[in-house]
Amino acid sequence: SAVVMEEGSPGEVPVLVEPPGLEDVEAALGMDRRTDAYSRSSSVSSQEEKSLHAEELVGRGIPIERVVSSEGGRPSVDLSFQPSQPLSKSSSSPELQTLQDILGDPGDKADVGRLSPEVKARSQSGTLDGESAAWSASGEDSRGQPEGPLPSSSPRSPSGLRPRGYTISDSAPSRRGKRVERDALKSRATASNAEKVPGINPSFVFLQLYHSPFFGDESNKPILLPNESQSFERSVQLLDQIPSYDTHKIAVLYVGEGQSNSELAILSNEHGSYRYTEFLTGLGRLIELKDCQPDKVYLGGLDVCGEDGQFTYCWHDDIMQAVFHIATLMPTKDVDKHRCDKKRHLGNDFVSIVYNDSGEDFKLGTIKGQFNFVHVIVTPLDYECNLVSLQCRKDMEGLVDTSVAKIVSDRNLPFVARQMALHANMASQVHHSRSNPTDIYPSKWIARLRHIKRLRQRICEEAAYSNPSLPLVHPPSHSKAPAQTPAEPTPGYEVGQRKRLISSVEDFTEFV
């Protein structure tokens, strides 16, 4: 048969007729292969192709491409040299491709048809291009793949890379869960390890502090508590009631339409708007009261037996805890006409967050109470924005700035309102402590230090009264110190430094 060459192609190359033996071998191979691939376009007849790359030819070592076609129900084999250009295909004639002069020997084609199974398996396991790669995943090629499931790999992101949580363990979102698992493993320790309690022994800490320079003076030496005195035992138990972190309780009120001037209507609300609910979820963490331990979680007086509701929101960081007394989460009882059960919590909070959804101005004093010092007013606006402002009593104007209003988005509203309420509550605590000038409020841990110092002074006084020969370590507060001759004046800087060093040991009130 003659071949018409394309323009620009090399000279004529004689194409030899395939021997009958080659056709029989390739026909047997075509019957084993699956003929249901995917359909081509209507211009080209339905056909199945599979590209198999052999590394070497037997005796020649030339890479070839073998295409199996099922045109007219008769499979045909096409061998081509890759750099050459194939002729145009037609549905009426068999596929013809040019070969190099080196394939002119018909014996070479017979060798190609009689490829060993080793070469076929190696060509099938190679990388296939384009559409033949999808075909190689079918059941027909499963014989050339190794048996057994593939090893499982770690989760992959859409980009093909490992997620960040699997790369950096410290930033993994499941870090707290692993800590819980470690605690569970520790709890399952053997009885021999049960006595080993991690941490620092208080006796060891005391020993280090006792021999430090801070205890060089007799006034700073630790003293032993009497065991037989019940009054001192009660004082030590009272110390446990003062937490070592700051605590805040903040009221949250929802004002519906037409309720801006009605205290009873505001306290009777059992739910609010959708934006109000989203605002609550951002204030803190939802907790169930019956599962809380009052000595570990500050509840601000809420009952854990269901008297004040089942849930509330709280927030904490390293040095403070805040609980929100939310009116809509507290039960509304029919027998309580004046809502006294709610007001006994909300009316005693220094700061209230008022979500004013009424469309009218909310005035300070609508919720009557002796300790309502500051109101954080949240007014929802259009386009997911809110107006946040402050209202306070006249005696609080020096501590709280009420002249600045803020426009905040719904997303950042819980954070801004919480921070403003916490700052206002700190100012309210300082303002409330002014009624007792001898006990200015600095912080909870300073209050613990003052309680310890008062307890020490009482013990020293009782020891001096029981044994008059012992001198008083600290003179009583009601006694007057003996007159001392004025010492020589020293520079102001040295006096300030000495006073600062003494105050650092005794108390921190002056620095606050």
Rank of each mutant, 00 (worst) to 15 (best):
N220M: 08
N220K: 09
P222W: 06
L224W: 10
L224V: 13
E228W: 08
S229W: 12
F232I: 13
R234P: 10
Q237A: 12
I242T: 10
Y245V: 09
K249W: 05
I250T: 01
V255N: 01
G258F: 15
E263N: 03
L267K: 04
S268D: 07
N269A: 03
N269Y: 01
G272K: 02
Y274C: 07
R275C: 00
R275Y: 00
Y276K: 00
T277D: 08
F279P: 00
F279Q: 00
L280D: 01
T281P: 03
E288T: 11
C292W: 08
G300P: 14
G300M: 07
G300T: 07
G301L: 05
G301K: 07
C305D: 14
E307R: 15
D308I: 08
Q310Y: 15
C314W: 15
I319T: 15
I319D: 15
M320F: 13
V323G: 03
H325C: 04
L329D: 05
T332L: 12
D334M: 13
D336R: 10
D336I: 06
H338K: 11
R339P: 15
C340V: 12
G347E: 15
N348C: 15
D349G: 14
D349F: 12
V351F: 01
V351R: 01
I353V: 04
V354E: 00
Y355R: 00
G359L: 04
F362G: 01
L364W: 15
G365T: 11
T366Y: 03
T366C: 07
N372Q: 15
H375L: 11
I377P: 00
V378M: 02
T379S: 06
Y383R: 04
S389T: 09
L390P: 01
C392L: 04
D395F: 14
D395V: 06
M396I: 15
E397Q: 08
E397C: 08
V400T: 05
V404N: 10
V404G: 14
A405E: 12
K406N: 15
I407G: 02
R411I: 08
V416F: 07
V416R: 00
M420Y: 04
A421K: 00
L422Q: 02
H423Y: 09
Q429M: 12
Q429K: 12
T438A: 10
T438Q: 10
D439E: 10
W445A: 13
R448N: 12
K453R: 10
K453P: 08
R454G: 15
L455V: 07
L455E: 13
E462P: 08
A463Y: 10
A464Y: 07
V473D: 15
H474G: 14
H474R: 09
S479Y: 07
A483T: 10
E488I: 09
E488M: 09
P491A: 14
Y493R: 15
Y493A: 13
G496H: 08
R500N: 15
L501V: 14
I502E: 15
S504L: 10
E510I: 05
